[in-house]
Amino acid sequence: MTQVAMTDVTLFLREFARTRRDTGAIAPSSPLLARALTRYVIPSPGRARAVLEVGPGTGAVTRRVRASLGALDTLDLVEANPRFAELLHRDYGGDERVRLLTGLVQEHELGSYDTIVCGLPFANFEAGTVEDIFGRLLAALRPGGTLSFFAYAGMPPLRRVFTTGGARERTLAVQAVVGRTLDRHRFRTETVLGNLPPAHVHHLAPVAPLLAYAG
Rank of each mutant, 00 (worst) to 15 (best):
A139F: 00
I26V: 15
Y40Q: 04
G145H: 06
A151K: 13
S112F: 14
P157A: 07
R90N: 12
I42Q: 09
Y40I: 00
N81R: 07
L193P: 03
A60G: 09
S112T: 15
H185L: 05
D183Q: 10
L32R: 15
I26M: 13
L87H: 10
L52V: 02
R63N: 07
V41I: 14
A199L: 02
V117H: 02
G94T: 12
E96C: 13
L88A: 03
Y152I: 11
L141N: 01
F12C: 08
G24L: 05
L182A: 11
H200T: 07
A123S: 13
R18E: 10
R18K: 15
L100M: 08
P157K: 04
F162G: 03
L75G: 00
A5P: 04
G93M: 04
R49M: 05
I26G: 13
H185A: 08
G215T: 14
R66S: 10
L172E: 12
I133C: 11
F122W: 06
F12M: 08
P197K: 09
Y152A: 11
L32W: 15
T129C: 13
T2D: 14
M155C: 02
T146V: 15
L104T: 14
V4W: 14
F125G: 01
G70M: 07
P56E: 00
T2R: 07
R168W: 14
S44I: 02
T164H: 14
F84T: 00
F125L: 14
F125K: 05
L193V: 05
A36F: 01
G70N: 11
V65G: 00
T115H: 00
T2W: 08
E126L: 15
E107I: 04
V61F: 01
Q3T: 15
A5E: 15
V201S: 00
R64C: 03
E107L: 04
E190M: 10
G144I: 02
F149T: 06
Y213A: 08
Q3W: 13
A5T: 15
E131H: 12
V41A: 08
P198N: 03
A80R: 10
L172D: 07
V117W: 02
P43T: 00
V98E: 01
Q175I: 09
G70E: 00
A151C: 12
L75S: 07
L147S: 00
P121I: 08
G119A: 11
L32C: 14
L32H: 15
R90T: 08
R159M: 15
L210K: 06
R170G: 05
A71V: 01
Y113R: 02
E169P: 01
V61A: 05
G55I: 05
E96Y: 06
T58G: 03
E131Y: 06
T58E: 07
L104R: 12
A151H: 10
T102C: 14
L138A: 04
L196P: 01
G135F: 11
T171G: 07
T181S: 11
G111W: 11
A71P: 00
R99W: 02
R99P: 04
T191R: 14
E109P: 07
I116D: 06
L182R: 11
N81K: 08
L210T: 11
R20L: 13
T181H: 06
A199G: 06
P43I: 03
P121M: 06
A176Y: 10
T115S: 12
R188Q: 14
L13I: 12
G55K: 00
A80L: 11
D183A: 15
A208C: 12
H202T: 07
